[in-house]
Computed example of a mutant assay.
Amino acid sequence: MTLGERLKQRRNELELSQPALAEKMGIEQSFLSKLENDRSLPSNETFRRWHEALNLSLTEVLAPLGQSYIRNKLTQIADIDTLLNNQQTKYLQQRARLITLSSLAIAFAIPLFYLGYTASIFPEKQYEYMSYGHIYENESVDIYRNWNQSHPGGAFFSSNSEEFLAKQQEITDRLDEKFILTFENRGSQYTEELENDDNTIYRTWYRQGINQGSIVHRPVNGLLQGFGLFLVVFGILGFWRERKLYPRA
């Protein structure tokens, strides 16, 4: 369908005669006849008065016309050329947005899946540490294990002395065993300072077990892997949709 045929069709739908439409547009009937028979191309002003007189928007005028016909025959009309340029700009923006979104989805998917698979952020090896009790300032950090060597001067307590028995009872009374589980490997042992209003006290923690930690599966790592796979699929579908919606010329 041509431009003249489209607007002639609309005139007939409205049951308007050529003279009546020509008068409404402010042009000669003979010129309107040329326009309807595509023997002349209207100026932008005449074209605007033409479709407005027929109560048609610009997009309604062009809807039944082929894209190749519009681009090859009608771009000399300024309103049509502007509309096509705006459509092309919007087309390119939408296409670029879809490509960018799909690319970002895949770009984020790979590190997310890797972090979940390797448990880099949320480790799955859990360590158990045990502490015997409080340690006071100037005492050995291994006082509970090696209290028999804590005699002044570094000598051993005699195992049958009153001093030995008193020290043994003191250590027994001070025992306050505590256990903690952590995903942080703090070494075979470590000492931490505790808050105390009167004086400085410490606790030494010893890693338990001969397997150097046990594996505990954490759901968050599975979620990271699952979300990574979801983003990969989302990105691939985005590129597929871009090819479908915006085929290469």
Rank of each mutant, 00 (worst) to 15 (best):
A22E: 03
N86L: 10
L83W: 00
T100C: 07
E128C: 03
F113L: 11
L115N: 11
R186K: 15
D38K: 10
E177M: 12
L32I: 00
N85A: 13
F31W: 06
L224T: 12
N160D: 13
S188P: 02
F183P: 01
F156N: 10
F113I: 02
G26E: 02
Q67E: 13
V232S: 05
F113M: 07
T204D: 04
L65C: 05
L101C: 12
Q189C: 09
N148P: 02
K125N: 13
T2D: 04
L98D: 01
T118L: 08
Y69A: 02
P219R: 10
Y144T: 01
P19M: 02
V216H: 11
T191I: 01
Q225L: 12
L112S: 09
L58M: 01
P123L: 08
T172W: 11
N196W: 07
H134N: 15
S131V: 01
S33N: 04
Q93I: 06
Y190H: 10
N12K: 14
K244C: 09
P111T: 08
H217P: 03
S17R: 05
L245Q: 13
S158K: 14
Q76E: 13
S33W: 02
G153D: 03
K8R: 11
R186P: 00
E170V: 00
E242K: 07
I210P: 06
K125C: 08
E15F: 11
S150H: 07
Q94C: 05
G116T: 08
N55Y: 05
S30F: 06
R145K: 06
S102L: 04
Q169R: 07
Y136A: 13
Q169C: 02
V141R: 12
